[in-house]
Amino acid sequence: MLPSPDWESLALLGQIAVKSSTAVLLAAYGEIVAERSGVLNLGLEGMLLLGALAGFAVGAATGDPAAALGAAAGAGALGALAHGIFVLSLGAEQVLSGLALSLLGAGLTGVLGRDLLGAPGLVLPSVPLPVLADVPVLGPALCNQPVLTYLALLLGPLLWWALGRTRWGLLVRACGENASAAYASGVPVRLVRYGCTCFGGALAGLGGAFLSLSYTPGWKEGLSAGQGWIAIAMVVFAAWRPLRALWGGLFFGLLTALQFTWQAEGAQWLPLWVLRAAPYLLTLLVLALAQTSAALRRRSGPPADLGRFFRPGG
């Protein structure tokens, strides 16, 4: 039932695991930045889809990877901008606006992508790094991946540094923890929040492009299959920290990879539907565990001003 423990299949498992985590990781990083600035964006699922379709369509039309990724990031950021206008300028309920964005992403991509279903398009393949990719086990897992997967692996430490060690990160954290105090200190709260929201949208868009250009190349309605929601759960599990999100994302990827191998081997001891539902159920379990441990350690709660509308006085 378990794959035989030879190095080759272990390497393959590792490669699939890291690859499978990419979209969730990118979306989760984006959400972390947005939420650390105080904006809750439940529209990840919609932005993943927008990015996936935009990336696929532009890739198919131009064949240019840079244009495809740019379009995907732009589409995600545009969706996030809509959310930003509603919650930051109009003071709309953030949960509802995020749900509307998710719905809009699903509906709009369903309508606009109707002629692209099953069409051939650009594929961004794995790019093995010279020498490093040949290291046993870890080589294929970490150094023989598509470009966006490398980005996902590098962004964790990068965002950890940026949020915790730079002035830019200080401004973001101040806006998320106490918007009015930040404003009183001269921080342009709304601008920072718009920026972080759109940055988060761009990352989610790239995550979507990974799905339609590298993971399962091609366009399919609803191809994100809830990964946006899993990414939001990952943010909670990671206690709003990029490095913990990296581990959480890789764990999710491992689950997905195990599901593939078991499914391929026709494992009989677990019904197929339970296997397919496992990512959602385990995410729920992980959420509950994270909440228990957070309650025990009384730390790492959400940013204090998360989801609160801020309007400068006067």
């Binding site: 200080l170 954290r173 101040a174 923890e177 930040a182 200190s185």
Partner: peptide
């Protein structure tokens, strides 16, 4: 003041 930040961070802000 941003309670989650240190005094020095609040000053820098």
């Amino acid at each position: 003041l941003v309670e989650a930040l240190t005094g020095a961070e609040n000053l820098a802000l």
